[in-house]
Design a protein around this nucleic acid. Structure first.
Lengths: 341, 341
DNA sequence: CTCCTCGATGAAAACCTTTGAGTCGCCGGT
DNA sequence: ACCGGCGACTCAAAGGTTTTCATCGAGGAG
């Protein structure tokens, strides 16, 4: 049977070759139970022989499903995308979505223009759902997305009411407690904190963990904390400020590895030995940072790959209309000991 | 006219409201010239009033175009994705593609499994074309993709025959010449080179530029060159090796900013002052690296955003079946002077 | 006044799949 | 022998858009 020169085979072709109707062939492909074993085998053989691949557009048209989901990063400050964390999240997203055979539409939202575009796109029915990364305070994108009749899973807690929202968060607070307790267990008496920006909830949660582990109130915490803005440079400066503020410090919990790298540099310049004079614990356990600082960084691991995987799973459940038991998931964090503490 | 509760408006609805036929409405949307001004205006008004957005699936079905292109990163070593360069390319791709309203399907290819998946996907007609980043030697993905009847634009020169391929490359060799000439013009006599891995053409081109600027042959070059593998750690080690090999060196051209950051650390530890004792020039002009080393790094700028933008433009031309004059584009590089040289 | 041309428009086919309704044959029960 | 029921299957409609072809009307040439 000579098939046409180059055209891709259609379901009709498969059905013809298998000696069944289009409908039956379709049922085989969609794993419907109402198919006889013979038909099933014949169709599968035909699919294989012809190298058939369903036409996504046709399928999308009738099912009213696009087979695509948006992955949205909302980030007023484009620079932070040079953060290696970002690359990791994207990689994890690409992988997890490819595994379930759905297309990933990446959207980076910086400006109000981008927001409008994202709004149009998400409202336009071009995707079945969305994964949203919007860590910042009062991010308008979140209010926009919230109003859309679109299944959405957030990474971490977006600012504002969480009513009815689905999200997968890391246990930032628990991780911070872990880190601080560890420093205490080393016998450190004067523990300080380089915090992340006050407009990100993950930073706030980490700060809260630090406070609760030490039994500090807001005022007490303010005396031993500096904002490092989640950047290397910020970590450097915050550490310097802390050295000035608390000369007797003997340990520091830094809210991100990137900042910790900066902090280590400052400590080194100040002639402090790590961990002898000052013990340092970071957060993220970022492979290419934590393992390559000197000394290698003790850090709280939050598994971004795992987080994204859970987000995807959760979203798929929503798309399948399964009733999800827990709307919010919290992923555990663990302390990874290296040499800095 | 009460419209249905929630269903998205269709072209039929638009046509009805504008008092024309579906066909005419379609012509307006596709900017066909054969439309009267009145019809045009009426349809546009209806589109606006209804918030109409074309159904991508339906359109894809009939035009046999998906409105999506794949962006493929082939990279045996997943770690390199922590390279900030990668994040930049992705960002640029997302932006450039969104600008022309096509969806970006991101594919990260690490393993042979991934290759097979990519093959299936690209052959499956799920995208109209592809942007391929495959810098490494003998990357099998390239041979796979080459056989596909799919418009593809490569980033840089993939290894192997370039016959009939479309690509947008940076002028690596020219940039290297620029860097080396600059060091010469500073009166430096003993200039060495920290190279990228020998299985990436961009690294080889930079090495070649270095060689030709100094008039070195292979043997001569080998004496003053070390491979830094495009990593920070590699740059550190390569610099140390060079210091041992060529104690009298007074300048170094490093083939990437990340390696240059490492090299600077080594120089500092060796007690060399930069630029007084040793002048350093990097490559990439990566914002978050070059500006934050101490001293700030003189570097060759290659504009990744520009490169990706050109790739997208080129691909769009291919998709429109325009005959493209030049299959290969070369983007200029410029030297950005800071304090390290 | 008629014929022709040409531009604008409408009707309908085509794209490929899913799915609800209907058909067919067969078995067991009466 | 008939009927009901059931499992496996086929038919055909539906989904929203583009595009070809035909139609219609107006305006110019003869």
């Amino acid at each position: 049977m000579l098939v046409s020169i180059h055209a891709r085979p259609t379901l009709e072709d498969v059905a013809a070759r298998a000696g069944v109707s289009r409908a039956t062939a379709s049922r085989v492909l969609n794993a419907s139970p109402r198919v006889s074993p013979e038909a099933l085998e014949a169709v599968n053989a035909a699919v294989l022989a012809l190298g058939y691949q369903p036409n996504r557009a046709a399928r999308a048209l009738v099912t009213r499903r696009t087979g695509a989901v948006a992955v949205v990063f909302s980030e007023p400050e484009p620079k932070i995308f040079d953060d290696p964390h970002f690359a990791r999240l994207i990689r994890a997203g690409a992988r997890a979505l490819a595994d379930v055979d759905v297309q990933m539409v990446l959207m980076l939202v910086h400006s109000p223009d981008d927001q409008a575009r994202a709004h149009r796109f998400l409202a336009g029915g071009h995707v079945d759902g969305a994964l949203v990364f919007a860590p910042h305070r009062n991010d308008e994108l979140v209010s926009i997305v919230k109003k859309l009749p679109l299944p959405v899973v957030y990474a971490g807690k977006p600012w504002g009411s969480l009513r009815g929202m689905h999200l997968v968060d890391n246990d930032n607070e628990g991780g911070a407690v872990l880190a601080t307790e560890h420093l205490k267990s080393l016998g450190r008496k004067k523990i300080v904190h380089v915090a992340g920006p006050a407009d990100e909830l993950s930073a706030i949660d980490r700060l809260n963990g630090f406070k609760s582990a030490l039994g500090l109130d807001d005022k007490g915490a303010a005396k031993v904390t500096e904002d490092g803005g989640f950047t290397r440079e910020g970590g450097r400066k915050a550490m310097a400020a802390l050295l000035a503020k608390v000369p007797s410090l003997d340990a520091v919990f830094v809210a991100s590895d990137l900042m910790a790298a900066g902090a280590l540099e400052t400590l080194q310049e100040a002639g402090k030995r790590v961990p002898e004079d000052v013990a340092v614990v970071g957060f993220d356990d970022h492979a290419t940072i934590a393992e390559h600082t000197s000394p290698p960084l003790t850090s709280v691991r939050q598994d971004s790959d795992e987080q994204v995987k859970h987000m995807v799973e959760h979203l798929m459940k929503l798309l399948r209309d399964e009733t999800v038991k827990t709307k919010k998931q919290m992923l555990p964090t663990v302390l990874v000991r290296r040499e800095s503490a």
